[in-house]
Design a protein around this nucleic acid. Structure first.
Length: 857
DNA sequence: GCGGACTGCTTACCT
DNA sequence: ACAGGTAAGCAGTCCGCG
């Protein structure tokens, strides 16, 4: 059955005119610039912008000429403010009465705007305005405030006028609206917002000159990481890998004169003087690249270089590094810290599909590039110049590759995320997805002339939650998981609601200002299972903006990312946009249930989940009414048996008309195996892939030995097409279990195959309640002088001795005899049982527990 | 003093 | 520092047992 929903329900996206191929390095007007970042120049007391000029391939700095100043709002009047701000009054320029829209109370409000000479007067000092009076919008970093007030979006192209004015350079609004109009499901009232997203996401992009850098420091104590704030030790190597082909590694060889040697695919430049070496490096970093990437440069490389330069007496104007409170950047380039970017959970999960686990250069590079660091046996300070050069160059190469692999995927992803969040790249890298959404919503408030509410205000006006979570300690009830029907089921079809929570947000007008709004007449518009109501008079801010983003993702970028008729380069770009929008949509509900989010609104998060449950339950009921069976379901997906094409079509049409939501056919399983456990199943999809969810056999911490044994079972299961095939395959599975079991018994394994690898999520000392095995192993490592920190993956094997575990590490000697084989058999048993249960098989019977055969094995 | 039942902690997963 | 829901292993504790 091939149900083509789009044919039934809505016009396809093929009705949308295809864009001309994306325009990289095409002919742009002479005054075209790309906005890369904004910053504050403390010395001049002014904001400035970093603009990339694609014609000269250089970054230009544009100082503010609008007279913009830092400010915040207060509900006191001028005289009250003057009295309260006596200590800092000379740093204030003045006060203005302003009218703003108070969205919480849905009414205009008069506020006093306190305008300051510098950002620290607003916040950051003991006498700052926000310390002395209740202030609004006083926590926004000044450079972000500046971008918001000028409506400027980083990552977007602008035309630079003679007067320094910047005009967004994109397709016309009318053109964007005509595209928006053809997307299905876009309401007339949201057309403009949808068009705005399209303009922004379709805008041209430059091929920025980029590089990756890495430094090495000679520290006398090998186990201690050098302190960048002191920068006491010499910088012995700096490597730069650039998109212009530069592969330079500068190495300090004291006593020797300057020389340039061609290394293996790179240039090694030796310096007799550290100072001269750094000056030469600084000159390159101050002019050649628009984007400079590091791995942990915010916390190490850049502050180290900056402070080391100062120690060496290099004049300030020759050091292009700017240190800020949150990190570091360059004067004429933007800094991208890949470490903090990859640390971002949303990036890890949604953009990279959980492909990397560890947040080290080695771990991430291995997972994404299939390459790693150069192995060295000695400490940095005792490496030969050539070895050091090779090591440092390789790291810079990895950094560069991480930024640029797959057609600059990461760089493009960052630039799209900047466009969506309206953040500069540096800020984007440093903040989590809640920071991104915060900035987007703040920006929209400013655009509309709305006052950004204070966190306490929202809580006071909107109140808390009323539902009870299933998990103790959670704030409200979440999604429903249907009990799976245990056993093997043939011909199962899955349908799911496309981006359920964002759709609910959009469809039910959910926003912090529309939930429990002040209008009496809206109180009847209740959210199921709660006493909350939703505004019927005004369109919610975040409801419309997230809704619009969802429409462009679903209507444009998702289909285009897999549209084989498009050129590959273009498809890749659409995949980047598709990924970036996914990250935003996925987080758009959760942030409102996150206490630290400045627009935290418990009833809003609670209502979103409640409507999600309502929708889900209604769908289950509808399935039954249509005569099919729900064999499993989780949050937004339904696994159906006995649902033919006609039933699916009816179901989907029902969801569209009755709920206004997209229910989509997802996978089809030839067969699927459920135990009684939720979030645990295995099935063969119609595409011939064995899909495994949640089973221990696929968890990443388990020993390779067990995973391999489990995978060999999956290979067998891939051969099952009909119930008849099952018996043969079950026999094969029994055989293979016997084989793997025998291998374990006879100790035919390498220690490394038996290693559990579990992440240490805190410092070992911080485990006060219990001492889990991986923590025991970590503590043993410490006793052997091995450094362990939070975030490390600890590898250990289970042993027969009293401790029960031994870390697997070169510095700890263990032998195969120490292994507790019984424990591993037990682990293997429980891993397999999750599947065998439902196939009417029994691990113990297969391996013959208590049998003579086993006794003599 | 010992073992089973139970609870809470921890990690990894699913949506 | 997006959310809640689920599974599993293990450490530690409670409880019964003349």
């Amino acid at each position: 059955m091939q149900l083509k929903l789009t044919d039934v329900l809505a016009p396809t996206t093929s009705g949308i005119p295809k864009q001309e191929p994306l325009r990289f390095e095409r002919t742009w007007p002479e005054n075209l610039r790309f906005l890369l970042s904004a910053a504050y120049d403390g010395a001049k007391g002014k904001a400035y912008l970093k603009l990339y000029n694609p014609h000269t391939k250089r970054v230009e700095l544009l100082e503010d000429n609008t007279g913009h100043l830092p400010y915040c709002y207060s509900d006191l009047d001028e005289s009250e403010l003057r009295a309260a701000l006596k200590e800092t009054i000379e740093r204030l320029v003045g006060f203005e009465r302003v009218r703003l829209f108070d969205a919480l109370r849905q009414q205009e409000k008069t506020m006093t705007k306190a305008i300051a000479k510098d950002p620290l007067t607003i916040g950051g000092r003991a006498y700052s305005v926000r310390e002395k009076v209740t202030a609004w919008e006083a926590d926004i970093p000044y450079h972000l405030n500046y971008l918001m007030d000028r409506g400027l979006i980083v990552g977007a192209p602008y035309l630079l006028g003679e007067d320094g004015r910047l005009t967004l350079y994109t397709m016309d609004t009318s053109e964007a609206i005509s595209i928006a109009r053809r997307l299905k499901g876009v309401e007339e009232r949201d057309l403009e917002l949808v068009a705005d997203w399209i303009r922004l996401l379709e805008a041209d992009q430059p091929d920025l000159p980029v590089c990756g850098i890495d430094i090495e420091v000679a520290n006398p104590i090998a186990t201690r990481v050098p302190d960048p704030s002191k920068a006491e030790d010499k910088v012995v190597a700096v490597a730069i890998r650039g998109s212009d082909g530069r592969k330079d590694v500068h190495v300090l060889v004291e006593g020797a004169g300057p020389s340039t040697v061609e290394g293996d695919g790179y240039r090694m430049i030796t310096h007799g003087s550290e100072r001269e070496m750094l000056e030469e490096v600084f000159a390159v970093l101050d002019s050649e690249y628009a984007v400079i990437a590091t791995f942990n440069g915010d916390d190490f490389d850049l502050p180290y270089l900056r402070n080391r330069a100062e120690r060496l007496g290099i004049p300030k104007e020759k050091v292009p590094i700017v240190l800020g409170r949150e990190g570091a950047t360059f004067v004429r380039a933007v800094h991208v810290d890949l470490y903090s970017f990859f640390l971002n959970k949303s990036i890890q999960i949604y953009a990279f599909d959980n492909k990397y686990r560890e947040f080290t250069l080695e771990g991430i590079s291995q997972a994404l590039l299939g390459k790693g660091k150069v192995k060295i046996e000695e400490p940095i300070s005792s490496l030969s110049a050539v070895k050091l050069a090779e090591y440092c160059m390789n790291d810079a190469e990895l950094v560069y590759n991480l930024l640029t692999f797959e057609d600059r995927l990461v760089l493009r992803l960052m630039m799209v995320l900047c466009r969506i969040s309206r953040l500069p790249v540096e800020d984007l890298c440093r903040h989590g997805v809640s920071g991104w959404i915060k900035n987007l919503l703040y920006f929209e408030h400013r655009r509309r002339g709305w006052l950004i509410p204070r966190k306490e205000e929202i809580l006071e006006v909107k109140g808390g939650t009323v539902t009870k979570a299933v998990i103790e300690g959670k704030k409200y009830r979440g999604a429903i998981v249907v009990d799976p029907a245990p056993g093997i089921h043939f011909d199962v079809k899955v349908v799911d609601f496309a981006s359920l929570y964002p759709s609910v947000l959009a469809r039910w007008n959910l926003s912090y200002e529309t939930i429990r709004c002040p209008h009496e007449e809206c109180r009847r518009n209740l959210v199921p299972e709660t006493p909350h109501w939703v505004c019927t008079k005004n369109r919610g801010l975040q409801s419309s903006i997230i809704g619009a983003l969802k429409e462009v993702r679903v209507g444009l970028y998702k289909p285009r990312s897999s549209d084989k008729s498009l050129p590959e380069g273009q498809r890749r770009w659409y995949d980047v946009v598709q990924k970036a929008t996914k990250v935003f949509l996925n987080a758009s509900y959760g942030v409102f249930g996150f206490e630290e989010f400045p627009l935290y609104c418990p009833p809003l998060a609670e209502s979103t989940a409640a409507i999600g449950r309502y929708v889900f339950k209604s769908a289950i009921e509808k399935v039954r009414e249509l005569g099919a069976t729900v064999v499993y379901g989780d949050t937004d997906s339904l696994f159906l048996k006995g649902a033919d094409g006609a039933i699916l079509e009816k179901l989907i049409r029902w969801a569209a008309t009755e709920l206004g939501l997209d229910l989509e056919p997802d996978k089809e399983y030839v067969y699927i195996v459920f135990s009684s456990r939720k979030k645990n199943y295995l099935g063969l999809t119609s595409k011939g892939v064995v899909d495994v969810k949640g089973l221990t056999g696929k968890k990443r911490h388990i020993p390779d030995f067990i995973r391999e044994a489990f995978n060999s079972m999956l290979q067998e299961l891939a051969n099952v097409r009909t119930p008849e095939d099952l018996e043969t395959v079950k026999r094969h599975i029994a055989d293979l279990i016997k084989t793997w079991h025998r291998k374990l018994r006879k100790r035919e394994f390498e220690l490394s195959e038996l290693a559990f690898s579990v992440m240490l999520s805190k410092q070992p000392e911080s485990y006060t309640e219990t001492t889990p095995p991986h923590v025991k192993a970590a503590k043993i490592l410490q006793q052997h002088g091995v450094q362990v920190t939070s975030g490390d993956i600890i590898r250990y094997v289970k042993t027969k001795d009293k401790v029960g575990v031994a870390p697997l590490h070169p510095s700890v000697k263990i032998s195969k005899d120490q292994v507790d084989v019984e424990k591993y058999i037990e682990y293997m048993r429980s891993t397999f049982e999750q599947v065998l249960d439902s196939l009417d098989m029994d691990f113990d019977v297969i391996v013959g527990v208590g049998s003579l055969e086993q006794f003599f094995a």
